[in-house]
Design a protein around this nucleic acid. Structure first.
Lengths: 333, 333
DNA sequence: GTGAAAGCGCTAACAC
DNA sequence: GTGTTAGCGCTTTCAC
């Protein structure tokens, strides 16, 4: 492995000059710069970023801790994070947590600080017991909190939008195929569903609610139960598009037409949802933007801390979702 | 930030002893070990892995270079890679390449060596112009090659399996909705399609082939064209499940029943495919296993190199896919 | 078994 | 502008 020393010798300069030529932190005469560059070229020198990090006390690395990539939201958010990070000159260290409950979260966190990551994006609804205070962190998929920097989406508003749309289409008995209530987003959407019904003077009865696990499989199963219990429903709000797929399938099997007999609205706006049968009306959750915003916010915090301004004030950013109207929620025949 | 020095002082030992107590590379008396551990606890010491890496000349970090996560295969493979890596004590540095053609691949590679990653998993069909020879690398989504270590899937065999199944169900005029032929996997599957037809004494006419871009949208469009040109088809082999979704939708719109009038088989075995209408027969590509195997192979290469055995011989691992039979390919009525 | 000192590859501070 | 040297936090000789 070839080092600054070799380059310095080859270019007939000192190691300090090589460093200066490379980082431009101090001026170097154009002529020697050329010579250094030539030497670097000749020797195929690759600076050791680890050594530099040791001095700079920063690694230009961000860690992202997230859950199962099969959830569309998590996967898209990761895309946004990676894009934002590489645009800002940071690398991304990826940690996928399959079973948060069985995972030693504090140990993970200390492994991250050992690797001297500059910041962490915590995209997992489970929180680590205690957070290293000096490490800049952004939390996703979580309610706003005064002590934490959070980038989040107004899921409740999304549910309200979807419900108002269904009401406007003449629907009156609207079921809810939700995800598990252990998820904050699921609780928020349920509140939105409930509030809208109550405001409209309609019953938000518990018998209208079932809970899946976000999978298409569970959507199908839970929809069967809902249909058996409340055959009178004329619409369903579904926690995500994947469950929406299962709901559509079960509805067909039950001999009901969508949207004539039953309207369906999902969440996520996956690319596939436009090609379901019929095309699914859905709430776009702007996952990629969330990821990008999270990185930008995090990098701001890192820079601030590095300028010596100490830990910055927690910040909350809340995005509004967008309703995408397609065939599955057209007015009843 | 607190260092070995602080710990040493606090425990009344030398820094060397702290290091030995921590890494167990050299024996330390039980009594002093306890004292050191206590000091670490007291001070909340976090060893700096960067400094350690500088000496060890290894970072226990793997880089994965891959494309768009919206492709199911890429996303699942990443899950396998991360799982394998963390099981073996390695971290994963993620690089998502949106536009391979516009990306400076050699620059990316040298940034990786600058970060002193121990190895690279190249899960991108585009190759970097020249590869640093000393850096262990595994290539995915690529044909076997004598100079490269490749972990791959026998896509041709997958296509053959699917085609033989369709023939066994009595289908005779089988279209192909493929991905772009710029992708090796698409070329392989097309060869499998063609060979099976020819072996069966059936025409593998070009008019039976259309090419989408792997999206559901393109599946729908291309299927429309295929149906217009060859209304006589009684089955289609589709390059992936997402396009399969579009194909199903267009087929319904055209008033054809699946599977009675037309059988459909996809590739990938996405969880959703079992909930398409009707449930989609598909070829499982075992993406997670590919990722896991790739990491295991890579780590072997890294260890070998680190033991001083020099660069190891290139290895090729080829997995066989598995056909998952569902409703969409049942025998014609 | 433990301490002192050298050194991994680099940048920063201080000379000139 | 450039060279020299100390030192980032750690491991690893080499003494004892």
């Amino acid at each position: 492995m070839i080092t600054v020393k070799d380059v310095a010798k080859h270019a007939n300069v000192s190691v300090g000059t090589v460093s200066n030529a490379l980082t431009r932190r101090r001026p170097v005469s154009e002529e020697t710069r050329q010579r250094v560059m030539q030497a670097i070229e000749d020797l195929g020198y690759q600076p050791n970023l680890l050594a530099r990090s040791l001095i700079d006390r920063r690694s230009y690395t961000l860690a992202v801790v997230t859950g199962r990539l099969e959830y569309y939201g998590g996967s898209r958010t990761l895309v946004g994070i990676e894009g934002g990070a590489s645009a800002l000159g940071y690398s991304v260290l990826l940690h996928l947590i399959r079973r948060p409950a069985q995972t030693d979260l504090p140990a993970l966190l200390s492994s991250l600080t050992s690797r001297r990551v500059d910041g962490v994006i915590w995209a997992l609804s489970e929180l680590p017991a205690q957070v290293a205070l000096h490490l800049p962190m952004i939390f996703l998929f979580m309610p706003p909190h005064p002590d934490r920097s959070v980038v989040t989406m107004d899921h409740r508003a999304g549910a309200v939008q979807a419900m108002q749309h269904l009401l406007a289409q003449g629907r009156r008995t609207i079921g809810l195929v939700n995800g598990p209530l252990t998820w904050w987003v699921a609780r928020e959407r349920q509140t939105g569903w409930q509030e809208t019904l109550q405001t409209a003077g309609l019953a938000a009865d518990d018998s209208l609610i079932v809970h899946g696990d976000w999978s298409a499989a569970s959507g199908e199963q839970r929809m069967a139960e809902l249909l058996a219990r409340r055959p009178d429903i004329d619409a369903v709000l579904v926690g995500n598009d994947q469950m929406g797929l299962g709901v559509l399938r079960k509805t067909h099997q039950a001999g009901r037409r969508v949207p004539q007999d039953l309207a369906v609205v999902g969440f996520d706006n996956t690319p596939e949802s436009a090609f379901f049968w019929p095309a699914l009306t859905t709430v776009d959750l702007r996952h990629v933007e969330i990821g990008r915003l999270a990185v930008e916010q995090l990098v701001k915090m890192i820079e601030a801390q590095h300028e010596g301004n100490g830990a910055s004030q927690p910040v909350t950013v809340t995005l509004k979702p967008e309703l995408i109207i397609r065939e599955s929620s057209a007015a009843s025949a």
